[in-house]
Design a protein around this nucleic acid. Structure first.
Lengths: 226, 226
DNA sequence: TTGATATCTTACTCGCCGGTCGGATTTGCA
DNA sequence: TGCAAATCCGACCGGCGAGTAAGATATCAA
């Protein structure tokens, strides 16, 4: 049983009387579902779980969504839309590549702090059908490529040290994605402070690509850390 | 049906004749299981899948493991053992904090590139029972704390810029964990080159904690990126 | 050779969950 | 008011997968 937060109450009440606002109800399902999915994972959440939380029964859910997968795909869509929107506004700016990437880091951390952003990162798209998986992964790949383009533009204009943009993008995205595993909305830490340290540390990593004493370091002894 | 790689053949052959080497067979189960779990996820892998891959039937598996969870816990144990061992050897060194962290990054990427390391990071411990989850998460938490200690020591000896070690550890670990999602052992990219860029970029981020022009930057306009 | 034991198989049980069927109840509109 | 459509429910189906029971077969030690 997921803990019942006060924030869910309005969604429950929405379903109290029939015939009202199908769109609002559909949205209510999504908001409730994404919370439970994040808490329990998609696979371990049954349609009954979602329905119960909404104070309805399972078949009622199938009035708003064809199946369980459609709910998940819709969640991904909403989440990736947020990221797309942010990327669009960053790309439109007239800034150096480094500044754009820094803006990306700041914006991305904020999106990941939200439910739908966290869902994009944490929910397992391996649960999807082949078609759904293709769709979702294509969107993720596109986001990755746009981040790489940001980095490349920074390398070109000299604001970012020469490096492999592909790996750099993985490092940036990975670092921020990790947030989805530990960040709790009710966290005592200020989100702005967290985002600030992310920007500082990661942007610094991009500018100082080759500190001589680090570039030449030898790695640890070749023990068999398989 | 998971693709049958040549590397699995020896494990299949091990079970060809009965009564031979229980320890080796147990290990063979683990090696086979971790591969399938990484490909298909733990939840979507049935005991029949594992058994089939080994050329035996499901009940035979229960001769070596009490249940499915025991296999997963054992995989976690082997993976975290690798990390513990590495941390131990790093902690024993007489180096600056930054150098120790750099060694950690290099060693960690190599471990994550292996099956059991990748398993620690990618397999969902939410599938475990309460007891198993407690155990696994305790080990993960301990690793996190030891990394923080490494960072703290670097801040103390001045090799790392002052920052929140907790967040810094999350950033480092997150960046490397991300590798588990895209790295394929048969990758064309040289692992050493990847590890090198990880070390360079992340270590640089730790040394240059406060570039003035970055510290003072204002974040993106406060749109509602929920 | 012969029992004792380990190993492995065939054939089940049982619970869970996505999805559906048919019907009941409401709502809004003519 | 009356009726068509929308909304929702109780009861069910079918499949999947973890785990087990009971027995067959090979191995090893004596």
């Amino acid at each position: 049983m997921p803990k019942q937060s006060a924030a869910l109450q309005p969604h429950r009440r929405l379903f109290a009387d029939r015939r009202r606002n199908p769109d609002a109800k559909r949205e209510a399902v999504l908001h409730t579902a994404v919370r439970i999915f994040l808490e329990r994972s998609y696979a371990r959440t049954s349609m009954d779980d979602v329905a119960t939380q909404l104070n309805i029964t399972k078949p009622a859910l199938y009035h708003y969504f064809r199946n369980k997968e459609e709910i998940l795909v819709e969640i991904y869509r909403l989440g990736t839309d947020l990221i797309d929107e942010m990327l669009g506004s960053i790309e439109a700016d007239e800034k150096t590549g480094l500044d754009k990437v820094a803006d990306f880091i700041a914006g991305y951390t904020r999106i990941i702090a939200g439910d739908f952003g966290r869902a994009v990162v944490r929910l397992d798209d391996g649960e999807l059908s082949k078609a759904g998986r293709r769709l979702v992964r294509a969107r993720k790949r596109e986001i990755d490529h746009r981040l790489r383009a940001l980095i490349d533009s920074g390398i070109e204009d000299g604001s970012i040290a020469s490096c492999d943009a592909k790996i750099a993008a993985f490092i940036l995205a990975g670092a921020i994605h990790g947030m989805a595993s530990w960040y709790k909305p009710a966290s005592p830490m200020d989100l702005a402070a967290i985002a600030g340290q992310y920007v500082r540390m990661l942007a610094a990593g991009l500018t100082a690509g080759d500190l001589p004493e680090l570039a030449g370091r030898q790695t640890i002894a070749p023990r068999r850390f398989e």
